[in-house]
Simulated assay, not measured.
Amino acid sequence: MTDSPARTYAERLATSSPLAGAALALGDLVQETHQRRAEIRVHSFDSTEDVRAAANRDELGDGDVFVVELEKVTGFLAVTILAAITVERGAVLHLNRPAHEYAGGEWIDSAVVAEREARNRGFLLRDESPAERINSMRRLANESAARVRTDPDPKNPEWQTALYRLTLAQSYLNEHDPVAAEVMAAESRRIREDLARIDATHRSPNHWHLAVRPQD
């Protein structure tokens, strides 16, 4: 029997090899997981009290993720529970077990998305080990430093956010990871020198002379 021309090469290979079939199934599972997590809504609030008010108004759905920048809180709604996955929780609750395990893992996708939002902002996660926290802060510091070095513009809100997160990560590493802190301190010195040069350029009379269009 010949294979149907409509079947892909991967599908034909999967039927001829159990290992290839397992690999194809795993790839499909990973893709489905990414898709589910991409569809989870993320809401930003000024306070955890605002999160509670929004939940009471049914503005949050099951599994939706919330972020409260000022209180360093992220979490998700699990039916009627506003669950914080960060060390800080504000006016919402901590779960009685790790978020990945809660309700038999039913909310693991929301937990993963909430953790990603927290790590991107330098919030400490409640269920992380000290080593995991250090790795998260190293990653945040490296990513933020790369953004700060790229097209430095102190007036750009995105650039300001990257600088704030770099400072936050460095502060944590200064206390918990001296080796990484030393590397980041050197990076910070280079960034300050770059900013000083930018500032000096903008203050230079020659700069302003060149920036002004001659009158006809």
Rank of each mutant, 00 (worst) to 15 (best):
R147H: 14
A185F: 12
N56T: 06
D50Q: 08
N206G: 04
A141Y: 09
R97G: 01
A53R: 14
A196E: 14
T74S: 12
N174S: 11
V179F: 08
A22Q: 15
L166I: 05
A25C: 03
D127M: 01
V113T: 06
I134Q: 04
I81V: 07
T150A: 12
W107P: 00
A180P: 03
P98C: 04
L173G: 04
H176V: 06
R97E: 15
A196R: 15
E32H: 14
W159S: 08
T15F: 05
R138P: 07
D50R: 11
V179A: 14
D62Y: 06
R165C: 07
S17V: 06
V113N: 01
S110A: 15
A25G: 05
H34E: 12
R89K: 15
P178C: 09
R89Q: 08
L60P: 00
L29S: 10
T15R: 15
G75L: 01
Y9G: 02
H43P: 01
A162S: 15
M137S: 05
N206Y: 07
P205L: 11
I108F: 00
Q35S: 14
D127A: 02
R121T: 07
T80I: 05
R121E: 10
L210C: 02
S136T: 10
W107R: 02
A54D: 05
A54W: 01
A83T: 07
M137A: 02
A131G: 01
S47N: 04
D151I: 03
V65H: 03
T86R: 03
A99T: 10
E182D: 13
A196Q: 14
A169N: 13
V87P: 00
L60T: 00
E132T: 06
P152F: 12
H94T: 03
H207P: 06
R149Y: 10
P5E: 14
N206V: 06
R36T: 10
A25D: 08
P214F: 04
P205V: 08
A103R: 10
I134P: 00
E182Q: 13
Q160N: 09
I40F: 06
L13D: 05
A99K: 00
A10H: 03
T167W: 02
E182F: 11
L124K: 11
Q160T: 09
S44I: 00
R37W: 04
A84C: 05
T201E: 13
Y164E: 13
K155F: 02
L24A: 09
F123Q: 01
E11L: 09
P18E: 13
V179N: 11
I85N: 15
R165S: 08
S188E: 05
I85R: 03
L19T: 14
S144E: 12
E39A: 15
V179P: 04
V68G: 06
T150F: 11
D50P: 03
R7V: 10
Q31A: 15
N120F: 07
T167R: 14
V68D: 03
R147Y: 01
R97T: 12
A162D: 09
E106H: 08
L70D: 12
L124F: 02
I191C: 03
E117K: 14
A145Y: 08
G104L: 10
L210H: 14
